[in-house]
């Protein structure tokens, strides 16, 4: 009966063992049905027709193009958000000025906007009937239904990830280290790279991890701005949808399984980071 126990402190005022078993059982069954089965079904469906079919459906030109585009978009969106996150957290956490909390709310805004709406705002801006549409057309610049649109939408939806990890941590750490470095004669950039950055490296990594997962998996917003042009503006999630709509289920699940695998890796790394650097990350996550 040692299988399930409560913290010793509360042992005597806790629920009876039967109730504990019941609650644990219900929780496990619920989580199994709600969360684990969907994950399992992806891999089972992907390998339904064997390993060779799986490999073949991943190695089509369109699939490879989709993987390449996803990597390209991520390779632009993640660094962009790292640079923004570092600049924003430095200017917000290390200085005192009015309207700071409002600014943080604005940075968090993309989290509360529907992905579809996020896509829509760029169409309204850059689309054929959008505010800048005529100008862009006259100069033969294509943003919507092209890679730049996909990149923009991805940056928008992953916008807060890095900044919201770094701001609370930098605020908690204060300015003492930086002031010490400056008083010892270090320059501003030197101080940033050899003092500030090492202090927040795990939180930064944590933010990058989440940002990366979201960038690779973004669907709704990208779906609007990409135009679903095969081999050109199709990212992996969009490719999954197209294959599914063509009843090419094995291929759809094969591409999906890659994304699911990525999610699992992200979860493992995230959990490892949380165990190893719980104190440092707790500052940001309690937010």
């Amino acid at each position: 009966m040692q299988f399930i126990s409560t913290s010793p402190r509360l042992a005597n005022v806790s629920e009876p063992l039967t109730v504990r078993f019941l609650l644990l059982g219900l929780t496990l069954v619920y989580l199994l049905a709600m969360l684990v089965l969907p994950l399992g079904v992806i891999f089972v469906e992907a390998f339904r027709k064997g390993y060779e079919t799986y490999a073949a459906s991943l190695l089509t030109d369109d699939s490879i193009a989709a993987i390449q585009l996803t990597l390209l978009v991520t390779a632009i969106a993640v660094p962009a958000n790292i640079i923004f996150g570092l600049a924003a957290s430095w200017s917000i956490a290390k200085y005192q000025f009015k309207g700071k909390s409002f600014l943080i709310t604005l940075i968090d805004l993309p989290f509360s906007v529907s992905p579809v709406v996020a896509g829509l705002i760029y169409v309204l801006m850059f689309g054929a009937q959008g505010y800048l549409g005529p100008y862009l057309q006259a100069h033969h610049i294509q943003i919507i239904f092209a890679v730049p649109g996909v990149v923009l939408a991805t940056i928008f939806l992953t916008f807060p990830f890095v900044a919201r990890q770094l701001i609370p941590l930098m605020q908690a750490q204060g300015n003492d280290d930086e002031e010490a470095a400056l008083s010892l004669g270090a320059g501003g950039l030197r101080t940033f790279f050899s003092v500030t950055l090492p202090n927040v490296r795990w939180a930064l990594l944590y933010g990058v991890l989440l940002c990366n997962a979201r960038a690779m998996g973004e669907f709704g917003a990208v779906s609007i701005v990409s135009g679903h042009i095969r081999g050109k503006t199709n990212t992996m999630p969009l490719h999954v949808e197209i294959l599914y709509n063509e009843y090419n289920f094995v291929a759809a699940f094969a591409v999906a399984s890659l994304l699911a695998f990525l999610a699992l890796v992200t979860l493992c790394l995230k959990t490892a980071l949380e165990w190893r650097y719980s104190g440092e990350l707790a500052v940001s996550r309690g937010h």
Binding site: L31, L37, V41, I42, P237, V240, F253, A256, T266
Partner: peptide, 21 residues
């Protein structure tokens, strides 16, 4: 860790999985 699956799984993948399930 499993609790975070809906956060980590791309929405299209989750949708596909739920539809199959």
């Amino acid at each position: 860790a499993v609790i975070d699956l809906p956060f980590a799984l791309p929405t299209a993948v989750a949708g596909l999985a739920l539809a199959a399930l």
